[in-house]
Design a protein around this nucleic acid. Structure first.
Lengths: 190, 190
DNA sequence: CGAGCGCTTGATTGAGTTCAAAAATCGTGG
DNA sequence: CCACGATTTTTGAACTCAATCAAGCGCTCG
């Protein structure tokens, strides 16, 4: 939980003396590699802050293929917003890619923080805006870039990730098959 | 500007008597069809609330093809978040698809609103969360759905839009060519 | 140490693109 | 209100990038 307290301290700039009380009522859980935090059909009332490890959110299509919407390494927040904020059954799986430690952020937690510390509003909304930025970038890539361009962008946008996540998951994130990614990589190393 | 005041009143639930003063310092502009509000290289310090009309945000790739990241009809807010919040030159065009009336929301405006009216935090962050929802859904579709499935989803997610926006733009939004969309549509009407 | 998982490589297929041109629609001025 | 030029949409044929199917290799970890 200390890592999440640091997040409140450093990123949201809450007063040191209040951080303790803020985290009362928040739970954190450990998940083994491949364990599920959310499955389709669940209603997930939480956003998930990653203390340690990596999570992925993905769907499975009618043909049985996985499609990764998002990865979340340390210090990131992951959530199926539709499920969390509209109380709908999730369409996605959220799963630990490595052994992970995850803080469960109750729906409304962030809004309470803002109400109590209005000066943190800019920081809090910045997290959401940053998330939208990344999604805008991702949509643009999916619309306009080739398999190779997407892979190269991934390498620069998420340096180090290539060593933590199996290639077939990166392929799924990029919207290509593992076979194609393999060919792209061998092309690049020519 | 009255429409934006209604937005503050209804969506953010600000007190009636304060709405007037909140909008001081906000400007609104009219744009003719095809006029540009933002071009690549600009730094856009605003988010754009659509009083009337439709905007689109798009990129042009190295091959000269357009790719629409997002449409924004009435009551929506459109912004290249990267440019607005990180002060970077935009990568995108923002253009009026119809004659449009647009309110320029200064960076920081929403955060000021929250500071002044902390109880609006939930409403304000909900707008951002809703935006993320839509993007998550869009990424999932781009990763997993065929041209036909994307088109059908578009029809249900944005009913009525088909009549306001030329098909070649919808094709660009869906990540397919106008020719493919035409074929999908003739298939569907068999 | 072998069974399963992840990655690579090769051959074939296919959904969607590209290129070209015709048809339909729109809009604007006479 | 109509005509004509421009824009948008459709249709056809050839092509292409990435997917699929299939097989083999090499770890790893149980």
């Amino acid at each position: 939980m200390d890592i999440f307290k640091n997040f409140l301290l450093q990123t949201l700039e809450l007063p040191v003396e209040d951080v303790e009380s803020c985290t009362n009522g928040l739970s954190h859980h450990n998940f083994e590699k491949n364990q599920f935090i959310v499955s389709p059909g669940n209603i997930s009332g939480y956003a998930y802050f990653v203390n340690k490890g990596v999570l992925r959110m993905y769907s499975i299509d009618t043909g049985g293929k996985e499609h990764i919407i998002q990865f979340a390494p340390e210090w990131w927040i992951l959530s199926d917003r539709r499920s969390t904020y509209l109380n709908e059954p999730s369409m996605f799986y959220i799963q630990a890619v490595e052994d992970s430690e995850v803080v469960f952020i109750k729906k409304g937690f962030m809004e309470e923080i803002i109400k109590t510390y209005p000066t943190s509003a800019a920081k809090t909304t910045m997290i959401l805006n940053r998330h939208i930025m990344l999604m805008q970038h991702r949509v643009n890539l999916l619309l306009s870039a080739t398999a190779e361009e997407r892979y190269l962008d991934f390498l620069t946008t998420y340096p180090g990730f290539i060593n933590r996540v199996p290639l077939y998951m990166i392929a799924s994130y990029l919207g290509i098959t593992p076979e194609s990614l393999s060919r792209v990589r061998s092309e690049l190393s020519r």
